[in-house]
């Protein structure tokens, strides 16, 4: 059973993202949406957490939310995959369950 963890809070404002990363199982996926997309960027205080999560899980970021915040896909952490809403849907199909970290 793989779970898709959906995060929508900036890791710089709330603890939800960090808490999420502490509760993922091997083979799970993490998707950053809304304000959480800032967590996908290289060279932040939070980058190391994402790099560690990438060792045992897949990490995705919603492209529309990145672009809306003026963030370029070229500057996201290597290994993080940008997806659109259709990709978001595909992730929910591929994973057995979802959990939102609000």
């Amino acid at each position: 059973m793989a779970m898709l963890h959906i995060v929508n809070k900036s890791p710089f404002e709330r603890t939800a993202f960090e808490s999420c990363l502490k509760h993922i199982s091997v083979g799970d996926s993490v998707l950053m949406i809304e304000d959480a997309v800032v967590g996908a960027m290289q060279n932040t205080r939070f980058s190391a957490h994402i790099e560690q999560a990438l060792q045992e899980s897949s990490v995705y970021v919603l492209s529309g939310d990145l672009a809306a915040r003026g963030l370029s896909q070229e500057r996201i952490i290597s290994g993080v995959t940008a997806v659109d809403y259709e990709g978001f849907v595909d992730l929910t199909v591929e994973c057995d369950t979802t959990q939102s970290w609000l």
């Binding site: 949406i33 809304e34 304000d35 809403y85 259709e86 849907v89 199909v93």
Partner: peptide
């Protein structure tokens, strides 16, 4: 908050994919 916007986009994508 953005939640309802996101859900709308998601719902449209779900339907567009035939789910």
């Amino acid at each position: 908050r953005q939640s309802s916007d996101t859900a709308l986009h998601f719902a449209r994508a779900v339907l567009a994919k035939g789910h």
